[in-house]
Design a binder for these strands. Structure first.
Lengths: 233, 233
DNA sequence: GCAGCCGCCCTTACGTTGTAAGTCTTACGA
DNA sequence: TCGTAAGACTTACAACGTAAGGGCGGCTGC
């Protein structure tokens, strides 16, 4: 009989790189990226910290792997949605791809920050870019313009933007009005703008912005600009 | 006589929040952001780590302060360059401001990463945004469009972009050609593009991109797009 | 059947980090 | 002259990543 275990002991599925990376994503999903430590990761797997090092080189390798797994998930999603007909609208296809990638990333709020810190580019990310490039080439982009396009999109190509400026943070909603009045002298344009935005959209709390529609606005701005350049060429 | 020191002992300029923050920037400039530890920072100041805590709350506070100092430096630079005449070209003014901010950030290569991790927005950054908004409003932007514009620009408004994709990294230049050939099957569009880019610009090593011109390309793409929307309104 | 080996996991331990808690020192006002 | 308090230092600790080595179980060669 194969592998008779001690009675009462759990079978204990063995560790593997795959399991470690999936557990890492799970830990980060539930506790944020700063809660992802080697010890906690091991605990999550019912193992000891040092046991992980048989399957991953170090913590950097874990983060690299996590990015690769998420990028693979993105590829699976975008591969499923569209095989655009030859000569179809490149803009529509690219837009849909990017918004689908964004949906995946929205499920892992901590992921953008990790993507940004990686210096080794994941193969899955390269595959994603390659497909995006293919859509643009098929849509009539020169290699040169497609290259510019990737840089212009930056992280937006993968579905996220770095917000430097989160009006939600800082003071809680309670005394935000008082803060606004206090800052009106220092930042007249900012305060005036926020007041009007809030007035136009009463559902929103002060300074609140719809991330999704802002993302789409910026994305369309860039895609439209690229399209105009493409037509002129 | 005031403050007679022990003979042979240095006068030792006292610590202050200002000095701590400036030293932090200096340490990060020379050794990268990961070399910025409280102990090293103290050593740089000729003091002990715990002495810093009299002047800053904790390390997060140091990073917040560093961002504020750099944003202040940016404000000083951009305030100096231009007070555009009423009705002048908003695009030119905004572009010049942003490129000047970029020059400051290029002197602190580690700074973008720190900016991105801050959740408390620095007052100096707010001041920068307020001035940028003022230029746009004077150029005929509605509050709504100016708001979209800030989001669309994102970190570009401060002069940097997050590159997710650095062709320089990975393999060294020596065996990069071999890697390319190997990857050609997997990433045909990417490899084809890089080959052509490299061919057109023989000075560049394979996969090398001119960050500055790519930044300006993306910036102009967004500014032109915004201008077109403004004209239609 | 058994000896050796090796893949896999664990134990122990170390250096580095941020920082809590308490102590010494020095300048100054009463 | 003597508190007193600001400002620097000393000591100490928990949490982190991870180096080094120990042990165990199943496979392979004889």
């Amino acid at each position: 009989m194969a592998s008779q275990a001690v009675p009462g002991a759990e079978p204990r599925t063995p560790l593997s790189r795959e399991r470690v990376l999936r557990a890492a994503i799970s830990v980060a999903d539930s506790g944020g990226i700063e809660s992802l430590t080697m010890r906690r990761l091991a605990e999550h797997l019912g193992a000891e910290a040092m046991s992980l090092y048989y399957h991953v080189a170090n913590k950097e390798d874990v983060l690299d792997g996590v990015v690769d797994v998420i990028a693979t998930e993105i590829n699976e999603v975008v591969d499923r949605i569209d095989v655009p007909a030859e000569g179809a609208d490149w803009k529509k296809a690219v837009r849909q791809r990017i918004l689908s990638a964004r949906e995946v990333l929205l499920r892992h709020a901590w992921a953008p920050g990790v993507f940004e810190t990686r210096t080794n580019t994941s193969l899955a990310v390269l595959r994603y870019y390659d497909a995006l490039l293919g859509l643009m080439r098929a849509g009539g982009f020169s290699n040169d313009l497609a290259h510019h396009a990737l840089h212009a999109l930056g992280s937006r190509a993968l579905g996220f933007t770095q917000e430097l400026f989160d009006p939600n943070s800082g003071a809680g909603a309670t005394d935000q009005a008082a803060d606004l009045a206090e800052m009106a002298g220092q930042f007249p344009n900012l305060v005036g703008m926020l007041a009007e935005i809030a007035h136009d959209d009463p559902d929103s709390t002060l300074g609140w912005c719809d991330d999704q529609s802002e993302f789409e606005f910026g994305l369309d701005l860039i895609l439209d600009g690229l399209d105009r350049i493409r037509e002129r060429a």
